[in-house]
Amino acid sequence: MPRYVVERSFPEGLSLPTNVAGAAKCVDIVNTNAEEGVTWLHSYVSADHARTYCVYDAPNPEAIRQVARRNGLPVDQITEISVLNPYFYLSMAGASRAAANRTVYRAPWRPFRYFL
């Protein structure tokens, strides 16, 4: 199943409260997606909640647009992607313990935030 990134824009800002209503909306979306074999993996949301970049596994772009319409979600752009993961590369190339120890963090480490 190919993987896609779907860009959406919400001019009034996306709001998905972390309560029962929000969870119910998520379940609705997932169930509607399942009707066409579309899987919503996760989304990245801009700081102003106006743009999202959603990662999906789907059989084809037509299925993504169909379920987006049923869910009432806008679609700006769909791009097919392949997954590039640095840890996969490092493990394949057999990076040694010593090399890993040599890694220096230049910036102070701060955790990312989950969308609330």
């Binding site: 896609y4 084809n60 772009p61 037509e62 647009r65 752009q77 769909i78 791009t79 097919e80």
Partner: peptide, 12 residues
């Protein structure tokens, strides 16, 4: 299908 994807800007 090709024309639909062209017009929508979808991949493939």
């Amino acid at each position: 299908l090709a024309r639909i994807r062209l017009r929508r800007g979808d991949p493939g």
